[in-house]
Design a protein around this nucleic acid. Structure first.
Lengths: 376, 376
DNA sequence: CCTCATCATGGTAGCGCTACCACAAGATGC
DNA sequence: GCATCTTGTGGTAGCGCTACCATGATGAGG
């Protein structure tokens, strides 16, 4: 107040400007503060932050030191405002597996908030339903789509993405498309490893439940299973391979068939956790103890795997990391496109893990000998 | 290029300005476009958008018409940049139920993107672990917390929130705290309704599995069960009420106890879906058909309810709507606080629904008569 | 009739950052 | 030796919106 008086006429813009309390957000350091500290211009700081080239190593270090000292964090709002267009990408999903979904969301959310982009989450029941929705989203300014299976395995969906000139990132597709980026795990090798693990436990008759034939990954998992069997010199028996559809219910039916086979398999490897859980339920209904009478293994490591009892031995997919990568890849590609570049679609393979829990063990004598001592 | 030549010196700022292609985001309409269309100033448009007073009704309508005509949507980034501080709220969760979580996330995500605020998702295993995390988040500028149970049922957590001068919204607490806002369903009434529904089916011996004693809602559900029994003139039997902890495993143990009771109950009402699913598994193991030999009902309508077979009859909580409300309430309260107001904590009760699926039916003659024809 | 409050509205200056150019200094080519 | 690139850096002008004043028009009060 006193300032105003001492300065000039009260209505003077100069006085006003001085009087005004800054609207700055809680005194957080800005790029200008960093520049002052590092004795360079804000532009140079900006360049360092964004990892652009053309900055001398020495300068870069000074800037980084200043950033660390002031505990500076860029203001997202300003960034996207100045950066021109706001990036918006859509997360399509029809996957009813809630545990998959929440991991999926968390990964995307985290990355989106880091990159300050908007993510639209779109539920869709079927592929047929997905397509008009995607078209509509694209018209609404969505330039990127994150596609989990089975959407990313459907060529017509991928074609649609190309048609609307959007970017698609496939998360966990069965096989890499030549036209769109993808992040996946090695389904073949993972299924191979799990099968080898079961064989290593001493099992010789291992049932397999195939996943939804719509998803290409299902086939790869089946092949991994077969390869491990062959590698171990075990026969691949048709009666021990039954079709499922990734649902609990289909898993029950498949497990019923498998358990009815004579001699009964001593282990079941299901292509996902829902079907594995169903297999456990069926085994229990038949008064078979898991894992003592029968080993059951799953795939995915969704929440269900550790919810039920016994907890499932399964293959963990790093879903969260996969989605996070997908989002950042989408951003990268969209930005590159705007700059006129059009790189060939990237392929990212992430590591899986075999998570050993309580549902597997070596075949007990009775079970292993089963075929011989009670052939019926 | 030609322009530059024809205009003035190539380096002239005027020429440069003309040459520069606008950085505007894809030609989306701005507040200025709306102002032009509505023949008023951008300020007036801003006032209309933000629902501020002091705008003539006639002007407001013109502005709204212009907004509709141009299909204008405010730019979030610019808004929060100009508006000063960025709102940031944290979503704490320790709930391992993935389906609950994904619903929880979706609701928050949607609302957060609508209001353009940043949501930080923080996983925490225990209440003890949650507290330092929350303190740290608060120091980092988080001013609001969304708290699901059991966090919101813990007084020390609520006290911590007050201490760091943050805002907390409880999502589904057992009882309303006097100091913080909450959004919940009527757990008592919902449990009452479900019990009444089961009684209406003809059941007289209904087992109940209590939830985690840490969560106050557990008690309310129990009370609803008891009230419905009393209302119907049925005895409340101690041996038909067993303690669970909301986990599948605890549900199995509880169901084992319940099924061992003589005469066996013809129905089990579990306080959540995980425990209901476990009850179904136990029933199947005992070769009891669900629902023909025993009815099993759950609570929450998480994904598990419709994953397993038979699908569970359960109480649906509108989790997504609850979280969305929580986020918007947090924003509202934080803004009000900044403006110096401090309203009394709001309480929001949302409607639940009884979802009838495949796991309930009237008691079969054998089961109903059970007590009488085979007393052992 | 002239204050003084009360609307309704407009003007202007940022919010913090990045795009775009300018420009100096050295490297390169002919 | 001079035009031409390259490299590192700085200056400036916004991005779209809102906070803050200023202003003109009205009505109330003396």
């Amino acid at each position: 107040m006193a300032w105003v008086m001492a300065d000039t006429a009260p209505t003077s813009p100069v006085a006003t400007r001085r009087l005004r309390t800054s609207r700055r957000s809680g005194g957080a350091p800005t790029i200008a503060d960093v520049a002052r500290e590092a004795r360079c211009s804000p532009m140079t700081v900006s360049r360092v932050i964004n990892g652009e080239g053309n900055v001398r190593e020495e300068t870069r270090e000074q800037v980084l030191a200043a950033i660390a000292k002031l505990n500076y964090a860029p203001n997202r709002a300003a960034r996207s405002l100045a950066g021109g267009e706001q990036l918006r990408i859509a997360l399509m999903f029809d996957n009813p597996s809630a545990s998959y979904l929440s991991e999926f969301l968390m990964g995307a959310l985290e990355e989106a908030s880091r990159a300050d982009i908007h993510v639209v989450v779109q539920n869709c029941e079927t592929i047929a339903q997905a397509k008009p929705l995607m078209r509509h989203l694209a018209e609404g300014g969505i330039t990127g789509f994150i596609l989990p299976p089975p959407l990313c395995d459907d060529q017509s969906v991928l074609d649609l993405v190309s048609e609307v000139e959007a970017v698609a990132i496939a998360v966990g597709p069965g096989k890499a498309s030549g036209t769109h980026a993808a992040v996946l795990i090695d389904d073949f090798q993972a299924a191979y490893d799990m099968t080898a693990h079961i064989i290593g436990l001493g099992h010789k008759r291992i049932g397999f439940i195939i996943g939804n034939p719509e998803q290409v990954a299902s086939g790869r998992r089946l092949n991994g299973y077969k390869a491990a069997l062959e590698e171990a010199g075990l026969p691949v028996l048709d009666e021990l391979i039954v079709q499922g559809r990734f649902t609990y219910r289909s898993g029950m039916q498949a497990a019923e068939k498998l358990i009815a086979v004579e001699p009964r398999p001593t282990a079941i490897f299901a292509s996902n956790d829902d079907m594995a859980a169903a297999s456990v339920a069926v085994a229990h209904r038949r008064h078979l103890d898991v894992p003592n009478d029968i080993t059951v293994c799953g795939f995915d490591d969704t929440a269900m795997a550790s919810t039920i009892w016994p907890e499932l031995t399964t293959i963990r997919q790093p879903i969260r990391e996969m989605t996070a990568w997908a989002v950042s890849a989408a951003v990268r590609i969209i930005k590159a496109r705007r700059a006129g570049e059009r790189a060939s679609p990237e392929q990212k393979m992430l590591p899986y893990t075999l998570v050993r829990r309580e549902s597997d063990s070596g075949p007990t004598l009775a079970a292993a000998a089963g075929p011989r001592i009670r052939p019926l």
